[in-house]
């Protein structure tokens, strides 16, 4: 097809694989991108295809194995794809994807129930030390961004937690609301709904977030700790570089469209554009870090 160059691409509808269910955060975000897609890509429609399952692995595998002609792109989540490629049941590796752009950076926070006397991160650390590893911290699944964040946090803060894994952020939030667990590691996007019910102790991003200007970063409090979930778009490896270039340019335009940014704020997802090259660099860095962490805690050990 368009082997030679990116000229004229796209000349037919482009398929977009979403690795989560319709109506999920990834889908909602991609729907916003869809609104502006036609404007920057020759007026061709974007056809959604949902391949949910296995924490995104089914869909990501589908993206990695798609025909690399540029007419199948996929929404990817980091660190999901990186951690899944590191697991013993991996069905793709991290180099199976060529990243087009990062669109969302959803930082993680430490959150407690306000009925709890804990007010600051220092209180939290003191309490955790007092409880000698019995402080319950809710995370989402294992071998996930939340799990990695918890393990990293244990090292950085020098305490031990009792991890209580949940199936999703909704369950995790309910358990915290009901006071069944002491704290959670949650994402900004999921927490925004409960800012009045929860007490946010610290945010794991480099700078304070504009939506939560009163919540200090870990950096400010003296701990070098960042953790987040990022959403981006990718094509399978071996896609024509010219097409990749065309896609990267188009996404850059979409992501800087003021109307697009407005809508992203409305849906409560922290938009943060990164070019494909920078996103790839970030992924490589995270991959190395996670590999060390997994080896250290022997997460891949059988039995």
């Amino acid at each position: 097809m368009n082997k030679s160059n990116g000229e004229g691409y796209p000349n037919k509808p482009v398929q977009l694989i979403i690795a989560f269910t319709a109506g999920g955060s990834s889908d909602v975000q991609a729907r916003i991108v869809e609104k502006y897609w036609k404007k920057y890509f020759n007026d061709q429609p974007l056809a959604f295809e949902y391949k949910p399952g296995a924490g995104g692995q089914v869909g990501f595998t589908e993206i990695a194995r798609a025909v690399p002609d540029g007419y199948t792109i996929g929404g990817v989540n980091v660190p999901h794809i990186l951690l899944q490629s590191l697991s013993p049941q991996a069905t793709f590796c991290k180099d199976d994807f060529v990243h087009i752009a990062q669109v969302v950076n959803d930082p993680q926070l430490i959150v407690v129930n306000p009925n709890n006397p804990i007010r600051t991160l220092d209180d939290f650390i003191a309490e955790a030390k007092k409880k000698e590893g019995r402080m319950t911290v809710g995370i989402v699944g294992t071998f996930t961004a939340h799990h990695m964040a918890l393990l990293k946090l244990q090292d950085i803060l020098g305490v031990k937690f009792n991890a209580v894994p949940f199936q999703g952020s909704a369950d995790q939030n309910v358990a915290l609301l009901g006071g069944h667990i002491d704290a959670i590691i949650g994402n900004l996007n999921d927490i925004m709904r409960y800012t009045e019910q929860f007490r946010m102790l610290a945010i794991a991003s480099e700078n304070r977030h504009q939506w939560l200007p009163d919540v200090p970063t870990f950096q400010e409090l003296g701990y070098s700790f960042t953790s987040d979930i990022r959403r981006g778009f990718s094509v399978p490896a071996n896609t024509d570089p010219a097409i990749v270039q065309r896609l990267r340019e188009g996404f850059q335009q979409i992501c800087n469209d003021p109307e697009y940014l407005n809508e992203m704020e409305k849906i409560g997802q922290p938009a943060a554009y990164l070019s494909g090259e920078d996103f790839t660099k970030y992924c490589d860095r995270y991959y190395e870090e996670a590999k060390q962490l997994i080896d250290k805690y022997e997460l891949n050990k059988k039995n």
Binding site: T142, P165, Y297, E298, N303
Partner: peptide, 10 residues
Amino acid sequence: QQLPRTLPGI
């Protein structure tokens, strides 16, 4: 028997 019965932290 071949599946792990405990995991670190779980």
